[in-house]
């Protein structure tokens, strides 16, 4: 019988903490595949939302652990990714709440500043001038994201980082499509404003 430890190890990461579990081996094997497939995307979403690699890693582990515990109860009404992201979003909310919703106002030793986060650029074949422009654009988008509300930021990340459709975002967050569009519109307004657009 596979344990949670072996499941986590199969995700390509060492399981630092051993978790007690007693689940059927079929379920564990199935979940190990799911975790290995979706783990990078969950980590990426949490990293972009939190800007804290350690926190993102911890919450990714927590997310998969929660999902593993409830895997038997997952009925497939939504896609696995939607379900996992929903868990991740709830964990992220708890994380922010535990830090008194001050995350974006505080800069602790683990979190990465928006300017630093903008330093990661794709290694394209663009010229140095284009790279400078791109770096500046990324920095401005991060600056705009920093000023968004928690919900607007989540919607923005799901739409423009994870490239999810509006109806998928609505299902994931549990809002109507109209509300998602409204949040996205406000977020985009701020991004445009930061980038120097008038609209």
């Amino acid at each position: 019988m596979a344990t949670t430890t072996t499941v986590l190890e199969s995700m390509g990461k060492p399981a630092v903490a051993a978790f007690p579990s007693a689940v059927a081996s079929n379920d564990s094997a199935e979940f190990a595949d799911v975790a290995a497939r979706y783990r990078p995307q969950i980590f990426r979403f949490l990293l972009a939302s939190l800007r804290d690699p350690d926190a993102a890693e911890t919450l990714t582990q927590d997310c998969l652990l929660k999902a593993h515990r409830n895997w038997a109860g997952f009925r497939g009404e939504s896609s696995v990714m939607t379900w996992l992201l929903r868990i991740a979003i709830n964990l992220q909310k708890d994380h922010w709440r535990s830090r008194r919703l001050q995350f974006w106002k505080l800069t602790n030793s683990n979190s990465v500043d928006a300017d630093d986060a903008g330093q990661w650029l794709p290694s394209g074949e663009s010229s140095p001038e284009q790279q400078v422009v791109a770096r500046d654009q990324v920095r401005l988008v991060w600056k705009a994201v920093k000023g968004l509300s928690e919900r607007q930021r989540t919607v923005f990340m799901l739409r423009h980082v994870e490239e999810m459709e509006i109806h998928e975002i609505a299902t994931t967050i549990g809002l109507s499509e109209g509300t998602v569009k409204a949040h996205l519109s406000r977020a985009m307004g701020r991004v445009r404003s930061e980038l120097g657009g008038k609209r």
Partner: peptide
């Protein structure tokens, strides 16, 4: 310009995430 900025932002986040994901770390 906005589309370009958003694409750069997305690729930047993806690159950063890949780099951080590959880095071994102990959960605190």
């Amino acid at each position: 310009q906005v589309e370009l900025a958003l694409r750069n932002f997305r690729e930047s986040v993806h690159g950063w995430s890949e780099q951080e994901y590959a880095r071994p770390r102990v959960i605190k």
